[in-house]
Design a protein around this nucleic acid. Structure first.
Lengths: 240, 240
DNA sequence: GTAAACCCTGTACAACGTACAGTACCGTCT
DNA sequence: AGACGGTACTGTACGTTGTACAGGGTTTAC
C-alpha cells in the first residue's frame, strides 16, 4: 500500500518520508501518475479520469494504479494540488491591494480555464498540499500593507476566490456541460406556451440576459461586473 | 416513455400537456416520485438517491422508475425545481433594496441548509422549471425601485446567489463531507513537520482562521462578513 | 541465504444507470 | 363487441465504475 496522502502530497519536498527501498523499482513515480491523470482530465474532463483509463494510459493494469495512489479520491487531491503548484502567478510588485486582488482573480480564472476539472474537485484535504498552501500564502500577501486582521484577511481571500470559482463554473465549458444554447432554442417554444404572461419581470430580464449571453463579450462583461463589485465590496481596507 | 422533461416540470400548471389516458392507472404521480426522491436526499444526500433505492422506497422495481422519469439526471432537475417552488420566501414589503437582498440571501441560505443536496445539482435545465422561474422572478423584484438595467439586474442577482451558494457549500455539512476537524487534528502533526518555517503568513493566518473555525459563531461571522461585502459591492444602485 | 518489503497482475464483486423484451391493463376506435 | 395501441410495470441483462483479495516476481536488508 502506498504512503498516506499527506506524505504523497509532500513527496518532493525535502524531509519527505521516502518510500521503502526494497522491492523492484517502480516504473513510474507518483508525479508521473499524477501528470498522466491531469493530461487525461485536461482532454476529457474528470469523467475521463477513471482508474482503468489511467492504467491503460500508463500501460499498467487497473489495480497497479493502486500501487501509487490509495484511491481515486486521493488521486484527485494530488491532481488539484499539483495544478495549484504549477499555477502561474503574476507577481504583485508594488501595486495597491486593489490591483493585486484583480491580478489574483485573473490568475485564478486562467487556472480554472486551463483546468476546468478543478471545478469538480471539492475535497478539503487539498488544503493540506504544498502547492495549495504555497498558493494560499502568495495570495494572502495581496493584502499586505493594509491593516486587515488575520481572520478577515482569510475571509477576504475566500470571498474573492469563491467569486472566481462561481463565475468560472458558469463561463467555462466543461466537456460534461452541453451547449446551453442548443437546449434553449430547443425548448423555448414550449416554455413560452407555458409561461404566457406570468412572471413578466423574469421574462423581460431573462430575455435581456439571454440575448446578451449570445453576444460576443458577455462572459467578459459579467466577469468585470462581478470583479468590480467584489473589490468595491472589500471597501477601504487601508483604513480599518 | 414518459413525457419530455419540460412537460414534466410544468405538469401541475394549467395548460400542461397531459399524459395519454390509456393504460392502467399509475400507482404514483410524478409528484409522488419526486417527493420520495427528495425525502431520500434530505436523509442521505444525493448519493442516496439511486434509481434502485428510490424504486424500493416506492415498492417498485428499478426499471419502473423510468415510467415516471426519463433518467436520473432529469429526476434531479425535477427535485431541484420542486425545492425551489416550495421555498419559503420572506416578503419584501416596503424595505430598501439592501435589506431585500439581505432577506433574499438569508432565504437562500436556509433553503440550502434544508436541502444540502441542491449544492450537488448543477444542471442548467433547472432554469426551465416553474419553481425556479418563480423564484427568479421574485428575487429580481428585490431591485425594484432602483434604476438598474435589466442585464445588470440579472448579473447582480447572480452575484448574490453565487455568494450564498459558495458560503453554503463551505458551511453546510453534507453527509458526504466528513468532519473537517477530525481530518485536521489527525494530520496537523505531520503537516507541521513538513511546513517548518516556510509560508509564515499562511501558517499564521491559517492558524487564526482555523481556531476561529472551531469557535461558536464563526460560520455566522463569515456569512455576515461576506454578505456585508456583497451588499457594499453593489454600491448605490439607486443613483445609476 | 533467508526474510521482508515492494511492484505488479488476474480475478472477482458490488453498485451503478439503463437498454430491451415481455406482460397485464385500459381507454378508444371500428 | 372486438381489435388496436398506448401505458404501467416486471425481469433479465449489459457495460462501467471503484476496489478488495490473493498471489508472483524482484529487489534490498539482515
Amino acid at each position: 500500500m502506498p504512503r498516506p496522502l499527506i506524505d504523497l502530497l509532500w513527496r518532493d519536498r525535502p524531509g519527505a518520508t521516502a518510500g521503502g527501498s526494497r522491492g523492484p523499482r517502480a516504473r513510474y513515480s507518483t508525479g508521473d501518475v499524477v501528470s498522466r491523470a491531469i493530461a487525461l482530465a485536461d482532454e476529457g474532463g474528470l469523467a475521463a479520469v477513471t482508474v482503468r483509463a489511467l492504467a491503460q494510459s500508463l500501460e499498467l493494469t487497473a489495480m497497479s494504479v493502486y500501487t501509487h495512489v490509495n484511491s481515486r479520491d486521493d488521486l484527485l487531491v494530488l491532481m488539484a494540488d499539483h495544478a495549484h503548484g504549477q499555477m502561474t502567478t503574476t507577481p504583485f510588485g508594488r501595486s495597491t491591494w486593489r490591483t493585486r486582488v484583480r491580478r489574483l482573480a485573473e490568475d485564478n480564472l486562467a487556472l480554472l480555464r486551463d483546468h476546468p476539472w478543478l471545478l469538480g474537485i471539492d475535497d478539503p484535504r487539498t488544503a493540506l498540499g504544498p502547492g495549495t498552501i504555497a498558493k494560499y500564502d502568495h495570495e494572502l500577501h495581496a493584502f499586505d500593507g493594509t491593516s486587515i486582521s488575520d481572520i478577515r484577511r482569510d475571509a477576504a481571500l475566500t470571498f474573492v476566490l469563491d467569486f472566481v470559482r462561481s463565475t468560472a463554473a458558469r463561463t467555462v465549458m466543461t466537456p460534461a456541460t452541453g451547449d446551453f444554447g442548443e437546449l434553449w432554442e430547443q425548448s423555448v417554444d414550449r416554455l413560452a406556451g407555458y409561461l404566457g404572461d406570468d412572471f413578466a419581470l423574469a421574462q423581460r430580464v431573462g430575455r435581456a440576459a439571454g440575448e446578451a449571453m449570445g453576444g460576443p463579450h458577455d462572459a467578459e462583461r459579467a466577469w468585470q461586473f462581478g470583479l468590480t463589485r467584489v473589490i468595491a465590496g472589500l471597501g477601504d481596507l487601508d483604513s480599518r
